[in-house]
Amino acid sequence: MSGPEYPGSPAELPGVRVDECTMGVVEIIARPGRAGELVEIARGRGIELPTFGRIAYSSDRLALCVRPDRWLLLLAPPAPAASGPDRVDWWESAAQAGAAVDQSSAWATLLLAGPRSREVLARGCRLDLDPLLFPVGLAAATIMAQVPVILAAVPSGLLLLTSASTARHFREWLAAAAKPFGLMPQSIISVADLCRSESG
């Protein structure tokens, strides 16, 4: 009676998976008018900084851009003793064009996967996540469950970045929203896992 959205009982639902990613995060900010320069320097080092609203990824890192002339670079997690910006080895040559700020502890990163994941997010996300409009490769900053969230469509699912202080709140909200769709237990994954396709 209720239309095509929720066929079947919970037992038949294909399920949604939420995994937690551990990673290092560096925020890269171009100084006014220096974005092009910064992108070129990064490219020279083999790091692709995507255009606004998009992601760029290689086997072990992912860059996303949801603020003009700013990027979040997701990398393997830092060693506990390391200080952030030093880890971006190309930084010295780029310093005049911008700033790099370690944000590894600022974000909690979740990966939502499964065929119903966009329906789950519709419980709190105001963006139109139709796969035609938000395909793999796009990223956006928005508000979800009353907190700021950055989301990106990556090959393995939907990547959700939420502030560390609200991570537990957001996880609890997501778990509640996903429950009727069948929520699979979560595991810990790495940046490299994000860039593999969902079927893999």
Partner: peptide, 15 residues
């Protein structure tokens, strides 16, 4: 909607 009980408003927790 779902913004009741523990989800009424976000809680920020210290590290």
């Amino acid at each position: 909607g779902g913004e009741t009980g523990q989800h009424f408003k976000p809680k920020r927790r210290l590290p």
